[in-house]
Design a protein around this nucleic acid. Structure first.
Lengths: 113, 113
DNA sequence: TACATATCTGCAAGTCTTTGTAGATATGCA
DNA sequence: TGCATATCTACAAAGACTTGCAGATATGTA
């Protein structure tokens, strides 16, 4: 029972880290391989400093790691399967969502699979 | 691309809702079937009013539903598979965690599977 | 009806998160 | 070295989340 409390706390921390729209898109963007910060910022349409802050959080939690390539920092998922696991949650979103969103979710699920 | 933003927002909301240690234990407690608020409070060792607040959030998001039985409110998971999906995230916790926690995680994974 | 039990809601205080801005650091090249 | 590019960090304001507490509601029973 106490270990359930402890493990639930760890799980909650992981989920909290993932529970941000930018970070979800970021992880799905990295699902196919590494990418540098500026390119990510352009693709996700976010200011680079903001992206850097998100990356800092994910890095601190060891969800992503960094590799230097010249002056670029290439980021990649330590556990690429996490992208799939997140996309799997679309099943639960689709159920609750109005039909319009459910359609979008299906499209995105294909993009993210 | 815009639907990705929209869907990522929905996903983030779902994850945020799940990203609380009490709510995670609550959902895992419900994985085998319905239960009333007081019993849940006793099992999770939480004040009933706090549990009720958590249940209110999950109810608003339609993750749980309620059935009246006398003066008790029986709660159950609308999509019981979500409990399994959360437990699957233990794989990602185990990797990052020190060995001690990894052991706990494995035990809990058995309890929650 | 009056009471006890079971659960819910509203509110306020404390805490944590997000985000823009400004400036710091690090790298490669002229 | 000096400059441009790429990224990071610090900080403060705004906002969101958590939690205890007090009181509200609803149900069954005497």
């Amino acid at each position: 029972m106490p270990q359930r409390v402890h493990v639930a706390r760890e799980l909650a921390e992981l989920l909290k880290l993932l529970a941000h729209p930018d970070r979800i898109r970021l992880i799905e963007e990295l699902r196919l391989g590494e990418c540098d910060v500026n390119t990510l910022a352009r693709r996700l349409n976010l200011p680079p400093s903001r992206l850097s802050q998100h990356l800092g959080l994910l890095r601190a939690a060891r969800l992503v790691e960094e590799r230097r390539h010249g002056r670029q920092h290439m980021y990649y998922l330590v556990q690429p399967q996490i992208a799939r696991w997140i996309a799997d949650a679309l099943a639960f979103v689709e159920v609750r969502a109005p039909a319009a969103l459910a359609g979008e979710a299906r499209e995105v699920r294909e993009l993210w699979s």
